[in-house]
Amino acid sequence: MWSFALKRAGTTAVTLVAASVMIFAFIHVVPGDPIYVLLGDTATPDQIDALRHQLGLDQPIILQYLTWAGHVLEGDLGRSIFFQAPVTSVIADGAETSILLATMTMIWVALIGVPVGVIAAVRHGTWLDQGLSGAAMLMASIPTFWVGLYLILIFAARLGWFPSSGYPSIFEGGVINLRYLVLPSLALAAPNAALILRLTRASMLDVSREDYVRTARAKGIRPWQVVRRHILRNALLAVVSAFGFTFAALLSEAVVTETVFALPGIGRLVVQSILRRDYPVIQGVILVIVVAYLLINLLVDLSYRVLDPRVELQ
């Protein structure tokens, strides 16, 4: 177990370093001199020279990368041109919304995707199964922002059940503010629930063909107990990893949804920063998301191993 964990952590670290090189390179390949990029168009020549020296841009590129990486490790992602504030604090401001949105989305995904997937698998080959699988494919084919706009149209504009945009922090307005996230999380949940549904179904069917399921049936236990005790647990083992993966992907997938619902999250921050040419923020957000993505995947991989007793041997 430990050697596996170390090995897996090692690959993650290598990937992370390689990704960080790409992200570092990003600021050097965007159109224009990085100095102008960092200072904006209104910089004076003195400021430019000072910053060039301060950033070490007169140094060899490898040294530049190491300096940058050193800063990153210290938690310094540079300064936002637009906000005139550290990138870390700009990102931290959006983190609450993004994490809560992703969490709420995952709750819908788990509540819809898993049980419906189980039902489809148990009724394998019937009209119900075909209908549910077809519906899942349809859900995966709908753009989230279109769903979002319809949710706004129906539940916000027509019925007035939920607010249509924005999100005031729960730390200021209390938990009731979560209602701002209901519609966006539903929109975001649609394609992801579809994915988990299909995965749960496929995984259940896979497991139900296993010899040990036949053994369980031969014992004379009831069909739903066979499902509960033997198929479900083993099938969900595979779904668990998809959950981590989906959660990590949601942090960036939310870009469009956060824009539709004008949520102050990381996704909207990226889009606005692109339009504002606030490159340090874009760079910082990409870095944070990639790190989160890799770490979550690492954790999922490791926990997956812990859940499966067979690893003791390895």
Partner: peptide, 29 residues
């Protein structure tokens, strides 16, 4: 009758063993 239906009907005293002992037991229990 499936095994559980036989058990329900009170004729549960029939059992079976299979070819692959490696895969016939649930690996996580």
């Amino acid at each position: 009758l499936q095994p559980w239906q036989r058990v329900e009907a009170g004729h549960g005293r029939m059992a079976m063993i299979f070819q692959e002992p490696m895969t016939s037991l649930n690996p996580v229990r």
